[in-house]
Design a protein around this nucleic acid. Sequence first.
DNA 1: CCGATTATGAAACGCAACTGCTTTATTAAA
DNA 2: TTTAATAAAGCAGTTGCGTTTCATAATCGG
Lengths: 417, 417
Amino acid sequence: MITSRNSGSDASPEPDAVWPLSGATEPGPPTAVPSVVGVADLRATNAAAVLAVVRSADPHPRLSELARATSLSRPTVEAITEELADSGLIEAAPTPSARGQRSPGRPARRFRFRPHAGFVVGVDVRPRSVTACLADLDSEPVAVERRAVRADLSGPARAQAVTSAIQATLDLAEVSASQVWAATLGTPGLVDRGNTRVRQADNLRTWTEVDIVGVLRDLLGCPVAVENDANLAALGEQWRGAGGTAPDPSTGEMVFVLLGERLGSGVITGGRLLRGHHGAAGEIGFIHFSGDGRRDRPGLDPLPADTIRAAAAADPDAVAAIEVYGRRLADGLAPVLLALDPALVVLGTGLFPDPAGLPAAEILRTAAQHHADGLLVDPPRWQLSALGDDAVLTGAVRFALSSVEVVLRTRPTSLNT
Amino acid sequence: MITSRNSGSDASPEPDAVWPLSGATEPGPPTAVPSVVGVADLRATNAAAVLAVVRSADPHPRLSELARATSLSRPTVEAITEELADSGLIEAAPTPSARGQRSPGRPARRFRFRPHAGFVVGVDVRPRSVTACLADLDSEPVAVERRAVRADLSGPARAQAVTSAIQATLDLAEVSASQVWAATLGTPGLVDRGNTRVRQADNLRTWTEVDIVGVLRDLLGCPVAVENDANLAALGEQWRGAGGTAPDPSTGEMVFVLLGERLGSGVITGGRLLRGHHGAAGEIGFIHFSGDGRRDRPGLDPLPADTIRAAAAADPDAVAAIEVYGRRLADGLAPVLLALDPALVVLGTGLFPDPAGLPAAEILRTAAQHHADGLLVDPPRWQLSALGDDAVLTGAVRFALSSVEVVLRTRPTSLNT
DNA sequence: CCGATTATGAAACGCAACTGCTTTATTAAA
DNA sequence: TTTAATAAAGCAGTTGCGTTTCATAATCGG
């Protein structure tokens, strides 16, 4: 095992002061004194590079391929693969036995990533439901558990529902809490900047009084974070490339709009979530939308369910109503889009639960995009959510995973406990 | 000299694939394969750490202090200081001869940063003027040169004014072009994402047709970037802590509003400039402000100069007009502020050139802040620009400097050409 | 002038990575 | 079945950086 000079407390909810390996191109935040490195950190860094190649290469790579891809020497990658195998993060893969594909010479060992070396938990808390998802290191769900709850459930009872749902996923997948490396909980309302507390959630009674992060940390013994649901949904869409399976670079500059009971949004710029000073970025529900029924109050009333259904059935009045709604949305969003210059706006279909509503959502999207095109300098693309109802849950898993991956990128071999 | 395995082309305008040492806390952008490191990179990184301490320590540090501050061993920092001294980035400092402060024992060598080891150039291009600033590595100006030009000047002639102003600063300071490490030019209008071209600048004739980056690179032989003026002003304000000399953490989440002929803004989130997908982030000049004279066209007409003067003289009508203007501004900005959740809004006083206008600016600020407070969830502080007319120029210097500091943070010793 | 104190210098060690060579396992041809 | 070709795996030996440890040099207070 490698111990790093920079090793902070690994149980901290924020993986702080680690070394991002990705290249930030332009002016970054002003830094304090940069960290120093010792020889031991080399191993950790290079192990991360090897691990990344093993994860992405297809078919399973051989040592020589790893050496070429990382530009490390073969003896070095060999030593690294041994360490990674010891830590359980990779394992030997069977050599492909297809007759024609085999090359002459001594057959090479091949390596593959072990996604089940660890797990993460994502939770989606809504007024009427609590859903927990246990996912492996490839963010593949291994167990999902949903609890229907009453909207007026008290905070502690809701927390109880969360822990019980999580515990159920663990039991279902026969995974112990110690195998969980991180957890993230998505919630409506505002979250503090450190992702440790729910600051405000007007439709969830006494929910802010619960120290849900503490509860989950006691349950799982790993870093836990809370985050706004729209923000997580944005992350989820980013992961899925917002529509395709292929990663889409335009998701690095994206605005996700969650059309729920209250309007919310998640903003991604430079590939990362925009959180703001108080963690309240994206709270577009308080915008004064023009022409909305409630003239004096901010916000945009949600579309009635029957209008959506009627529009899906091509009722002209309902279609017109949705088009008006889309234009209002675009109108209110225009200043935000001007300020952010996103490549993409993704409309979360939380408001259009079943597939029947999809045609209506498409009408809304078209109307909004068309109207926005006339208002903006560099109009973004508008898309419907690719994940639908699962966006928040997926995003929670991604959030948890990304905090783990920061560590994987720096000292993966120190994780084998 | 140290050669790094990761050495890219140092003359590239974007310092790509270098190692940011600052800790990015939460989910970062999805990365390709991380870079690997060799032993040589250790030296570069640790040298950067030592350099940073030398720059920030006061009084000039001794070897043992450097060792303590960096947690490196004394022999290591000694070797590093030698290299840094060879490269010209630091030098021996005289020992303080004050009788009382001297400690017993052999007197220690002390080291200090040499800001004149290199220089950067910042340029502020406006319709009626071109200003160049030559600054040292502490971003201290060593020469400033201003050229008044006609607003309808052609692009090539304007470029000529730029090069001539830059050359004048070099001559004035007796600095050769080879000593300039980076240059940044601020301009109105839109800039492409790579900071290499001016995409759009409706009030500058044929300015977009000039390859100003190429021209300056030929002149200076160093990385050159162009950036929107409001964005640079935001960087400048961030550097000055937006009002104080002390660095202010709240500038990491800041919106700078440039009240010029056209409204522009620069947004800083997470300590870095928000650029957007097309580099057009912050273009709030196209927002439809309510109640403006031109109902059908977007934007907000600038305040007439005589109104400003009258308000400064406490004329009630003028004061009221400015208050209305401030409220309109806050109204139009509210969606942006909701989406970004900044800690701070800085009003650029480009519209209020002389000190006489300051009282009027203060009226505007107060009215805007008061009105915004009622519209937002987490209202930001509102401040007047601390740099005034120099904001863009200062920001250009900072932008250029930050791109060289990225290098200084990674392989400072490879710079001694 | 002497001891206390602090900085500097030099040698030896550990660790990670690299180069170059030998050995091993396999396929294809004789 | 043997043999040559080929590619992987194993095994020193070297280099570079950082660290520890010990010895030496310079200065101050008495």
